[in-house]
């Protein structure tokens, strides 16, 4: 092949990889609402600590995960800034059953649980801070209203 068509193919390869990367990035960290299902308990996910009274940030991590430590730090800070909200980080490196049960295709994956332990939202990848705060506002706000009644 002559150099000019070869260079065109290289450009197409770089363009294709860029499109893949942009598509991936657009889907990362988005807080997607989940229809409430049966409530979860800490025992369901093998957590030694209890869930939060108003809500829980339930993170799934593995050893081979570059973004999990950063996500852990972010979610810990967010939980500490919200009374009644707990952060639970579950290592699923050796828990294939949990990865299958929750359909986890990437880590970190974070589930936002309400005060009853029902899953309300799901975030794949490193979470977007504003998206989580907005969701926690909804959650803790509505729980306060219910508790005040």
């Amino acid at each position: 092949m002559n150099p000019i068509p070869a260079l065109s193919l290289l450009l197409a390869l770089v363009a294709g990889a860029t499109v893949l990367g942009l598509l991936w990035r657009a889907r990362q960290g988005r807080t997607a609402p989940v229809r409430a299902d049966a409530p979860l308990t800490p025992a369901d996910v093998g957590s030694p600590v209890s869930f939060g009274a108003l809500g829980t940030l339930l993170q799934f991590s593995t050893d081979h995960c570059a973004r999990c430590p950063g996500t852990h730090a972010l979610l810990t800070r967010l939980a500490e800034s919200r009374p009644g909200v707990a952060h639970v980080d579950i290592d699923i490196t050796h828990r294939r059953d949990l990865a299958n049960r929750f359909g986890i295709m990437q880590t970190p994956t974070t589930l936002i649980l309400d005060e009853t332990g029902r899953v309300r939202a799901r975030i794949g990848g490193a979470p977007n801070r504003a998206g989580i705060l907005e969701h926690l506002d909804d959650l803790t706000g509505s729980a306060h209203v219910r508790l005040a009644r």
Partner: peptide
Amino acid sequence: FLNAVFDYCLGCQLYLLLLRAG
């Protein structure tokens, strides 16, 4: 390229998929 430009960790993804496949 995805690793360098987008910080996309293919290793993480593959590890988890292989783990799920047993």
